[in-house]
Design a protein around this nucleic acid. Sequence first.
DNA 1: CTGTAACACTTAACCGATCAAGTCATGGCG
DNA 2: CGCCATGACTTGATCGGTTAAGTGTTACAG
Lengths: 339, 339
Amino acid sequence: MKRPTIADIAQRAGVSKGAVSYALNGQPGVSEATRKRIVAIAQEIGFNPNSAARALSGATAKAVGLTLCRPARILSIEPFFMGLISGFEAELAARSYALTLQVVATPENEVEVYRRWWGERRVDGVFVSDLRDDDVRIPVLQTLRLPAVVIGGPGDTGSITQVWSDDAGAVAEAVRYLVALGHRRIARVGGLPDLLHTQSRTRAFTDVCMALGLETAVTVPSDYTGEEGGRATRRLLIGAERPTAIIYDNDVMAVAGLAVAQEMGIRVPADLSIVAWDDSPLCSLVHPSLTALSRDISEYGAQAARQLLAAVDGEQVTSVEAGTAHLTPRGSTAPPRTR
Amino acid sequence: MKRPTIADIAQRAGVSKGAVSYALNGQPGVSEATRKRIVAIAQEIGFNPNSAARALSGATAKAVGLTLCRPARILSIEPFFMGLISGFEAELAARSYALTLQVVATPENEVEVYRRWWGERRVDGVFVSDLRDDDVRIPVLQTLRLPAVVIGGPGDTGSITQVWSDDAGAVAEAVRYLVALGHRRIARVGGLPDLLHTQSRTRAFTDVCMALGLETAVTVPSDYTGEEGGRATRRLLIGAERPTAIIYDNDVMAVAGLAVAQEMGIRVPADLSIVAWDDSPLCSLVHPSLTALSRDISEYGAQAARQLLAAVDGEQVTSVEAGTAHLTPRGSTAPPRTR
DNA sequence: CTGTAACACTTAACCGATCAAGTCATGGCG
DNA sequence: CGCCATGACTTGATCGGTTAAGTGTTACAG
């Protein structure tokens, strides 16, 4: 089947290619009558402008990119990214931007992909997630002048805007809640330690625990996988000073932690309270259901997409704070048993 | 920063654009010495061919598309798609094809997206998942002559090739295993009933149960969500003829079913055995860990990607069967308690 | 009645590649 | 020596849009 081009429309309408272009793009230069006729013909023959030709004549690629730099086995179960992606889509689809996805192995690979995309003019902008200390991607994006939005932070990203959520506030809310229930020994199983948002959560966790006069504020680093989360939990639970509550940096690790506790005969929530970060259906699926720090991840993604599209349009954009995660109490938290 | 073009290279090397094109594409028409010089310059200035210009001059878009037609809340937790996507990427990245993703609401929307992509020449081919009865997408793809690979089946897809796994064999293996353990009342919580592979699983389940002389072979339809899976489980467990084993069409529903059973005081596996379909980390995370029908979803995706790329290359491709899912026994299955 | 401005177009250059066709030097052969 | 084949390029058309500049018609002011 031959793809219709503007030349076909022009021929049918008896006008020039230029006129068709003006008509379809809402530019002045054609009469209202002609415009209507042209639009009708375009409709009829199912015309879609060739994106390559458009991109070639200086216009935009009408696509943005996202690289994911986590092992496949983490991605497959981590609900966060799919939530984010569907949030992106909501905004992108409305402006018929496509989302180009690439799974990569290392941050260096991510940089290569950015360079290639930019060189190929394949995308008009990119989403950047999982910000690290002195992230190698930031300077590259700046020299390429490739519009970008960093998801998560806040961190030092120079001229690149960020969409971030107040993790410090959320962690404080969780700790305060647990303390209000009577907990005095609260531990945390953190995410990948080289990610910036993990660091800011760790700092906030330590700070608020100290501020509330708790004895300890142990954070065990982990990697968001269930296995590691379970292992970290086991390590915490066999220690001498067993915590009465654990906060996990994602839901997958929290579920794994719950399983470990049950396996060890430690009852949740009687002997151990559990708080998950990021509330996916997973948290309400398990028994007992998990108290979680919920936030609207799709909306988070939508907000990032709005920012990126604005940046692509050349608008001056500033970093914004997306909604803070809020505690959703469920069955996994209770006052600690007094001994 | 200005993007380097082949004209820049041509100028530097003191040759024409055409010569550069021949050199970089390994075509005859330039001497080995000149080719080396040109390649070196391209390397040096970090040249990437503009994908739009390439696509425009008849070449391919170097991108394939995937539409996902499930509500966001399902996608976010369903590990299947992310596994599939990372499998795609493995093959696509090797040939530097990009993956374009779009989340849509209905199969009709999917058709629109295909039409648009095709008209825009944005993709060279598409993955088709979640095949339905008399799927509206198939005839459209055929008239558009848009290369495609159907994931899942087998079904009637005319000239479009499929990558499918032997669900009937897998369901038979699960049922035989449960029967060998001594189960006589086995139920199943199925996926979306209008999906073709759900239907073939249902048929196979009924057939094998009948063949083995079981009294019943109840399938409760569901929608892959945890909530529905839990509800279906509850319905099954409060019935007069309570099953001693349940097979779930995905892992999320199985986990939900486990939670429901525990909540009702029904012990797993003593009172109820559970088998999940598709083995994600989720299955080993919960307690007891779930016996599952495992298959290598990434490899499944990789195989589909290989097929699609071959189809894009114009090769004659035939439908292939990906590896059958095999039973991975874990803690959620045991002989039923004799009364 | 003329000058000119506004409108409704057309023409053609351009984006950055690919590729068929043409050019030019060189070498081998009868 | 002339002829043809070959290699190593160059030239220029082409893909399908966008857009600046040009053209022809009409309307209206002076």
